[in-house]
Design a protein around this nucleic acid. Structure first.
Lengths: 140, 140
DNA sequence: CAATACTCTACTGACTTTGTAGACTTTATC
DNA sequence: GATAAAGTCTACAAAGTCAGTAGAGTATTG
């Protein structure tokens, strides 16, 4: 499941993509426009900031902006930053590989092979979709 | 994430597929061969039984067998039975659709569109892989 | 300096996951 | 029909995760 954290984060990032080039947006504005609890969104944006996906400015006229242009930020990056690896089993994760404890024969584990394919397709879609694409899907 | 329940269930089912036609297999044997806690596996097999994916026989010479031939049971069915819907967001689930509470404009929600595609690909792979295929991936 | 706005850590309640316990039912065999 | 084998079912518990809140701290503008 995509957690609320991930969903909220994606929605906020898409909104920031739409506002890209128009100066920083306040957490409060983001929270209100997307109906996200403000304090929760603070945590989310902070995590995104630590990954360099957003930049922030404090003080009056502060707020958040995308860390890169919308064309250069993928949905996959955001999901990984907030919800962790895309892989459904750790033994097929690219970003957080870990062998299954009990799995002796990883090489020919059918579960692994099938979920490797799922991961690859998921990554293809999510890493192939940028914020620019996502933003353009929505009516203004 | 695929839960342990799902992973254990898949492994047990693949083993049952390999043993298909050779009579019932004991829970204890399944548990030992796949290093699954026996009591936990009981619950898992029970859930699979309630979905008709396995048949059981009590008493001496009892045990579990597949409810259908390995060609007619998909990995997707097993995952759904044990871990629930494949969709990462409820608003794109085929088996358990539910609109996002906060989402006003479902029609042009970019998150939804992207995860719709992910769900469809995931379902294509998992529903398209049968236990027969999975079993044949593994060396005997 | 005062107000604005982001930063960071820690906490909490609810829920889910991963098991375990134990009493019960059915079936085969002697 | 007694006995042992084996699955059935409900309930419980510990640990972990999720969703959200609290509050003190820091940087910036004017």
């Amino acid at each position: 499941m995509l957690t609320r954290k991930g969903k909220y984060g994606l929605k906020a990032m898409i909104l920031l993509a739409k506002e890209h080039g128009h100066g920083p947006v306040l957490i409060g504005d983001l929270a209100e426009r997307e109906a996200i609890p403000k304090k929760f969104l603070e945590n989310i944006l902070l995590a995104l900031k630590h990954r360099g996906l957003v930049h922030s400015r404090k003080g009056p006229h502060g707020g958040y902006q995308l860390g890169r242009t919308p064309e250069k930020i993928s949905v996959g990056e955001i999901v990984r930053a907030l919800d962790g690896p895309l892989a459904l089993v750790s033994c097929v994760s690219q970003t957080a590989y870990a062998p299954c404890e009990e799995c002796v024969t990883e090489k020919d584990c059918a579960v692994r092979r099938v979920f490797q394919e799922v991961r690859d397709e998921t990554a293809r879609i999510l890493d192939g979709t940028t914020l620019a694409t996502a933003a353009s899907m929505e009516a203004r």
